[in-house]
């Protein structure tokens, strides 16, 4: 059976995301849990995904969760980098032009 894959592309970059079948995959993703805001508010998480069963669809659920994690981490890192570039430009502008 094939595994899920994803492609992210924009004018400057293209990235392929694939799944390694031999790795262990679960439906509890690193980036698909409750938000930090509700965790800080003391929520008891009753909305976890069910554990996958040992079928093709069960495996697919786990693999898609891993794929989603990889994509989320990639995009978050990308956004943070763009933000920091923006901040550097802002800082440079403040230094050179007095913020005008």
């Amino acid at each position: 059976m094939s595994t899920p894959s994803a492609i992210y592309s924009n004018p400057s970059t293209t990235k392929h995301f694939t799944i390694n079948k031999t790795d262990k995959h679960t439906t509890n993703g690193k980036t698909t849990g409750p938000s930090q805001f509700v965790l800080d508010a003391g929520i008891i998480d009753k909305d976890q995904p069910s554990t996958p069963n040992q079928t093709y669809l069960g495996d697919l659920r786990s693999q898609v969760t891993t794929l989603q994690d990889d994509l989320n981490e990639f995009l978050t890192e990308r956004m943070q980098r763009e933000n920091s570039i923006g901040k550097e430009e802002e800082w440079e502008k403040t230094l050179l032009d007095g913020g005008e």
Binding site: T32, G33, P34, F37, V38, A41, I43, D47
Partner: peptide, 17 residues
């Protein structure tokens, strides 16, 4: 929890799961 509203991201997660 008391004192908190529901945020789109966490509500969507509830529905998905």
């Amino acid at each position: 929890p008391p004192g908190e509203g529901f945020l789109p991201r966490d509500t969507a997660r509830h529905h998905r799961n």
